[in-house]
């Protein structure tokens, strides 16, 4: 399936580039061919979310491209997290939440009747805003998912745990104390990477991240961003962030949401990150990314 991107898909180079229009157009032509290779992994169509009758997300549609990072940005209350949680049906945990529209994963509507929510969440993992390791050892935290999926073989579990922690760039820091040290005894940034490792251990196809760095210091934030760039080799990532620099540095595509007069979030503009940040088509987007509001 060819992605409807309407723009370049060139990986982001340096942030804050001031390319001229002409340069951008050239870049666009150069990468049009690459466009053809892009695959839509997930796609939201006419997504509406309401909590207890109050609409918080209205008519949001956008594709998530396979093996890329899609960032959802926007001011507080614009429904970013609500949209994100539709992608693995976590909104269902909130009483009186109603979701309409469709979310497709590999061309299959995850809200269709007969779809097992457990299956959806295994394929689409979620990293939360606040690190939330289980009150267990580091090892057990990571082994939790595979164990619940029925993995009992110790050697295989060991292997999954090591691979996942390595992928999450945490191995050097915790390998000595895997079984003795509690996940809660780690620092905030380490905890968040442990939570990422925990998600990786279940081998999802898509990883959702809900402001994963908002509780972290700048260095830990950079580590998470670097990690994302590495992870897209194998995974597709959707990240919610209120941090412009983070979106600009770490994402390939950006979806900008804002809040309507009725306080419902809607999609203002979306496109390749580089284009959206350098040549926003909406005044609102421009104001937001230049820090005039939000």
């Amino acid at each position: 399936m060819t992605a409807d991107l309407g723009g370049v898909a060139a990986p982001l180079k340096a942030s804050g580039s001031r390319s001229s229009l002409g340069q951008l157009a050239a870049a666009r032509r150069a990468t049009l061919a690459e466009d053809e290779a892009l695959v839509t992994k997930m796609e939201a169509t006419s997504l509406n979310v309401s909590y207890a009758g109050r609409t918080v997300v209205r008519d949001v549609s956008f594709p998530v491209i396979s093996n890329q990072v899609t960032a959802i940005i926007g001011p507080s209350g614009s429904g970013k997290s609500s949209v994100l949680r539709c992608f693995n049906r976590m909104n269902e945990l909130i009483p009186k939440a109603v979701v309409s529209g469709s979310v497709r994963l590999d061309d299959e509507d995850i809200y269709a009747s007969g779809v097992q929510v457990v299956e959806v969440r295994r394929r689409v993992g979620l990293v939360f805003q606040r690190p939330n390791p289980f009150p267990m050892s580091i090892y057990e935290n990571v082994a939790y998912g595979p164990r619940r999926l029925g993995e009992r073989n110790r050697a295989r579990l060991d292997e999954i745990v090591e691979r996942s922690i390595r992928q999450a760039a945490l191995w050097e820091e915790v390998s000595d104390d895997l079984r003795r040290k509690s996940g809660l005894a780690l620092s905030g940034g380490q905890q968040q990477r442990l939570c990422i490792a925990r998600v990786l251990a279940t081998e999802p196809e898509v990883i959702l991240m809900d402001e994963p760095a908002s509780a972290l210091d700048p260095i830990a934030t950079l580590q998470i961003e670097e990690l994302m760039r590495e992870l897209i080799e194998k995974y597709t990532i959707v990240i919610v962030t209120h941090n412009m620099q983070e979106a600009a540095r770490a994402s390939d595509h950006t979806v900008f949401m804002s809040m309507g007069t009725d306080r419902a979030g809607y999609l203002v503009e979306r496109g390749p990150t580089r284009q959206l940040f350098s040549m926003p088509t909406h005044k609102l987007t421009e104001d937001y990314i230049t820090g005039r509001f939000g």
Partner: peptide, 10 residues
């Protein structure tokens, strides 16, 4: 958080 973390893992 812990419930959600577990459920989110499928």
């Amino acid at each position: 958080d812990l419930r959600a973390a577990s459920l989110a893992l499928g």
